[in-house]
Design a protein around this nucleic acid. Sequence first.
DNA 1: AGTCTTGAAACAACATAAGTTACATGATGG
DNA 2: CCATCATGTAACTTATGTTGTTTCAAGACT
Lengths: 155, 155
Amino acid sequence: MRHDSRLSRMLHVLIHMDRHEGAATSETIAAMLSTNPVVVRRTMAGLREKGYVRSEKGHGGGWTLGRPLSEMTLLDIYEAVGEPAVFAVGPACDQPACLVEQAVNAALSEAFEEAEKLLLSRFGKVTLADIARDFDARMARYPASAAHAEAGWHS
Amino acid sequence: MRHDSRLSRMLHVLIHMDRHEGAATSETIAAMLSTNPVVVRRTMAGLREKGYVRSEKGHGGGWTLGRPLSEMTLLDIYEAVGEPAVFAVGPACDQPACLVEQAVNAALSEAFEEAEKLLLSRFGKVTLADIARDFDARMARYPASAAHAEAGWHS
DNA sequence: AGTCTTGAAACAACATAAGTTACATGATGG
DNA sequence: CCATCATGTAACTTATGTTGTTTCAAGACT
């Protein structure tokens, strides 16, 4: 089953935007993600609805942050990209009336819900500012990459 | 992203097999899962390799348990069906050299690995006998379903 | 021999994320 | 006010992986 990478991509973009002067166009962002501007708009639309980013049309337009990184958690962004299903494996529903199936699904659901609760609780505690700090630490450790990353945008 | 229901289905089947006299054919099992006999063979093949079930050809052939339910955990079956990816969302790999992407993926991986560890640790502690016991309790609570379920196989 | 059953390959159906094309809408700047 | 730039959105295509189906070979029992 293929991974949904929207959460990861949006986090990536938001941190770059924080280090970037002025608005970033969908095209610029798309190049950074090795993808298409329309995919960027589609995914960013969810973030805009929640106020995490703003978009402007026309000359000098593009995307800007709607609030500081310290006020966005992984959970916020996870929800903004549409709260995709966390798990790739799940209960079957072949014979809903079967008590065996019900017992099986109860056991699985219990375990899955517990793991999801832990995951989302962790997501809620990590801000994008935390990740940006980790980025700074990495940049300090690998000065060779610094110039590249310092520009904010790839290439 | 579509759910992988193989784990749930196999648990369902194994418990029914435990309550069933003699071998169960792929066709019978398929009817129980509202699916196709070939799908059953395909999925059960993984369990056979690990010794959780045995298969016999010819008249009176079919599938039988290879060991008691008390000696199979959810983790065992999860591994036997091919250890599918647990999570439907995952890190992107659009710019592997980008330190921002690396920091993002590190934060995500940490959270995911912790949740996966919890999930699999839970799976390892639940035996199929535990689920069968829960089934018994459910049957006692819903006597109307008892006759249906008592037969072991649906319909 | 004939029938039942698994084993396995090959292919079709289906769902979803991702990518693409095309065009409408709005904002800026000359 | 018009050309240009950028987002907004719909529709379509592609890619990938689970599930379903067809088909036939091979083994086992009567």
